[in-house]
């Protein structure tokens, strides 16, 4: 197969990892948590929203789509906000590890619930966007890929503007750097943190609605997209939004490019994770000790 075709296709898939990576990085920076449930809440929002379709048969298709997507965003934001509330209420002072472990537990719950609720039957979760955005010969760039890449960049830019240029951003930076100090200054830390959870959850709900059922086979497989997403965020060490986008595209491009070599189908699953580990080891080569002093 043509290497360039494979690369472009991989980049389209990488756009999704980039969005997830940006979401993970944002949460890590602002709420001190690696949210392993980040994709799961989006999947739940999207898959539950289609339960509303039978109630909307009378509505025109555009209205129906808009309502369903709105429900997906709302449900995802709510579940995410609930998790954020648990974190902010009981684990405000806990370590990043403990806070993240909660999202591992909730991931386990959501995966199992998705088995119970959605089974492995086809779900009529029609994607918002279908088809190629532009085609050149065999090379096709998908609409979904373009939309998700725009989303990733837009979220990153919006986050940058909010954090660096607005009073809200000052407060957000305060709660992530010096939570206790921020509390003393009268910042409503809990509300702000839950707010971050709600916003990121809503974004994930939107993204999963865009992909619909054209990505992975079922809810559970879709939830496991958090793994390449986290790999993307790792490239930016859960700190850098631009690097998370680069990381997502990198993982996607690697996976895509490797499909051009069918003989190494086994290595295909390993090369992205190995590349990221090597990159990180190089990047963190000076982190000999767990603490600076």
């Amino acid at each position: 197969m043509n290497f360039v075709v494979a690369l472009v296709v991989g980049l389209s898939a990488g756009a999704l990892y980039a969005v997830i990576g940006v979401g993970l990085t944002l949460m890590s920076v602002l709420t001190r948590v690696i949210n392993f449930s980040i994709v799961a809440v989006g999947v739940f929002g999207a898959f539950l929203s289609i339960r509303a379709v039978p109630l909307l048969v009378q509505a025109p298709p555009e209205v129906r789509t808009a309502v369903v997507v709105a429900i997906a965003v709302l449900v995802a934001a709510t579940i995410s906000g609930l998790l954020g509330w648990i974190e902010a209420t009981w684990l405000a002072e806990a370590s990043t590890t403990a806070r993240s472990a909660v999202t591992v537990a909730s991931l386990l719950m959501l995966i199992s619930l998705s088995f119970v609720l959605f089974g492995s039957r086809p779900q009529p979760l029609r994607p918002l966007l279908v088809g190629p955005a532009f085609v050149a010969g065999d090379i096709a760039v998908t609409k979904v890929g373009v939309a998700l890449l725009i989303t990733a960049v837009a979220v990153a830019v919006a986050a940058w503007i909010v954090i660096r240029r607005t009073p809200l951003g000052v407060q957000l930076r305060a709660i992530s750097d010096r939570q206790t100090a921020a509390e003393l200054l009268g910042v409503n830390v809990k509300a702000l943190q839950i707010g971050v959870w709600v916003v990121v959850g809503g974004i994930m709900g939107l993204c999963i609605s865009i992909i619909g059922n054209t990505g992975a086979a079922d809810a559970t497989s879709m939830i496991t997209l958090v793994i390449p997403g986290a790999a993307a965020a790792l490239v930016g060490a859960f700190k850098s939004l631009p690097m998370a986008i680069v990381g997502g595209l990198l993982v996607g491009a690697l996976q895509g490019a490797l499909t051009a070599f069918p003989s190494i189908t086994l290595l295909r699953d390993w090369i992205p994770i190995v590349v990221i580990i090597l990159f990180l080891l190089w990047n963190q080569r000076k982190e000999v000790w767990d603490v600076a002093r």
């Binding site: 690696i34 392993f36 370590s95 990043t96 590890t97 993240s100 591992v104 496991t224 793994i227 986290a230 790999a231 965020a233 790792l234 060490a237 859960f238 699953d269 390993w270 994770i273 990221i276 580990i277 990180l280 080891l281 963190q284 080569r285 982190e287 000999v288 767990d290």
Partner: peptide, 17 residues
């Protein structure tokens, strides 16, 4: 060199691969 949740992500990646 990698600690805490970074390591968690990597071990999860290994498990998936």
């Amino acid at each position: 060199r990698l600690r805490g949740v970074n390591l968690a992500v990597i071990t999860l990646g290994v498990a998936a691969a």
